[in-house]
Amino acid sequence: MATKVSHGDDAATGSRRTPFLVELYRSALGKKYLMAISGIVFMGYVLAHMLGNLKLYQGPEEFNKYAEFLREGLLTPILPESGMLNLLRLVLLVSLVVHVVAAVQLTRMNKQARPESYRSKRDYVAADFASRTMIWTGTIVLLFVAYHLADLTWGWVNPAEAGATVYDKVVASFSVPAVAAFYLVANLALGVHLYHGVWSLFQSLGINNRRFNHWRRALAVGFTVVVVGGNLSFPIAVQVGLIS
């Protein structure tokens, strides 16, 4: 095809050295690839986070031991203390930046693609609540993550006394009804986000096989129920006094 025979020029100008993912990211379609990949990173994270926190039910000792293990037990002494934890944090941070920046850029692109919206009321057939609110459920989760870090990672807004154990900090935080309520709302938003995102990432990554396609929705629902169900149980358990 005449339009794309200029590969020789590309090589001469050195575009070959541009990392593949950067080159892919330049297109909207490539941005979706990176959103899907970073989304998978978050899926792994929220699942591990939920499973780890189930130790809350085993009591303070087990839970605090788990928290210490994350700092000291992961691949030490091969890596320095908190080394692996910080590496994982870096992966999460990079994923977060990619996911959020791509989302903002794509949303802007989509607004420009329909500068004048329909004047009559739309009657959606397939576009569900979850898929149409990704940017908002994502924003709620992002705000929650900021609060959650300030509360339990950095301890800036945590109600427990200084020097409290991780377990005590969690219980102190979830004992405040407003915090528990925020936690519930944020996790429901996360659930709505996952319900569409986990299904959607298969499309974005071009993973499509008519024999297995019906499993994509089942996986999205199952994953969402497990992660959000587990997460919702923690503040509820504290509020009803199951954990104290």
Partner: peptide
């Protein structure tokens, strides 16, 4: 045009 967010509304229409 805009970018795809896999809502599936196109397929229905």
């Amino acid at each position: 045009f805009g970018s795809c967010t896999n809502m599936g509304e196109c397929e229905a229409a």
